[in-house]
Nucleic acid binder design. Structure first.
Length: 217
DNA sequence: ACCCAGGGTCATA
DNA sequence: TATGACCATGGG
């Protein structure tokens, strides 16, 4: 494999042609992105949608309203998303931190790598959740790595699935250059593609990336 | 009756 | 630092 970096952009163009622009993140407000990013941890998005709908119904899809809830009450509202006890406290952790930073205008003044470090300091916010929030809620130039990304690109033979999160992230960011819109679309396309053609059980027939994928051989 | 989902933390060796 | 247990619901 000669220069795997040079294939990242062409693969992006191909996914974009096949699936079209995804327009991610699926949310109405930056705050809703933050909530969704926590709720979707190791959880099917369909379940997250139910939980979000219940929060909207209860009119607590907003910082202060959500902070006013007890962990127990928040837990029952987000129950469909699973892991609801731990996620309730993670959401409250994130919200307390966010308010202490001064909310949107507060975080807007913080430089990206600094902001990322502070986010990672919140209990329950790991690298993927932090980067999803940075990229989709606050528009920062950070590439999001998830299980799908590892699966797809290691299956194609462009990376090792067990590579550290940071090294994969830097690899993508360096190969693609500083392109916020591309980061947003690319990760969305990866998720869309994985859901339809790159399941855990490999079946790559009809896959748009078939000619690249080792499982198709 | 399994397996899987847009992770992360904590205890243990 | 590197595994493993744990968190929990809902769809295939």
């Amino acid at each position: 494999m000669d220069d795997a970096d040079t294939q990242l952009r062409p693969l992006y163009e191909r996914l974009l042609r096949v699936y079209g622009p995804q327009g991610w993140w699926p949310a109405q407000t930056p705050f809703e992105v933050m909530v969704g990013a926590v709720l979707t941890q190791n959880t099917a998005w369909t379940n997250v949608e139910k939980a979000i709908a219940r929060l909207a119904q209860a009119q607590v899809l907003e910082l202060e309203a959500l902070l006013a809830l007890s962990p127990q009450r928040l837990g029952e509202l987000i129950r469909p998303a699973g892991f609801y006890n731990i996620k309730a406290s993670r959401l409250l952790n994130l919200c307390h931190w966010y308010r202490a930073q001064g909310g949107e205008p507060g975080v807007a003044r913080i430089e990206t790598s600094q902001l990322r470090q502070r986010l990672l300091g919140v209990n329950g916010i790991g690298p993927e959740t932090a980067d999803a929030i940075l990229l989709y809620a606050w528009g920062r130039r950070v590439f999001v790595i998830d299980a799908y990304t590892r699966r797809i690109f290691s299956r194609i033979g462009l990376c090792h699935g067990e590579s550290a999160y940071e090294s994969l992230r830097h690899w993508f960011e360096q190969a693609l250059g500083p392109d916020r819109d591309c980061y947003q679309e690319y990760h969305a396309l990866i998720v869309t593609h994985a859901k339809t053609h790159c399941r855990v059980r490999p079946r790559c027939r009809g896959c748009p990336l078939e000619q690249h994928c080792a499982h198709a051989l």
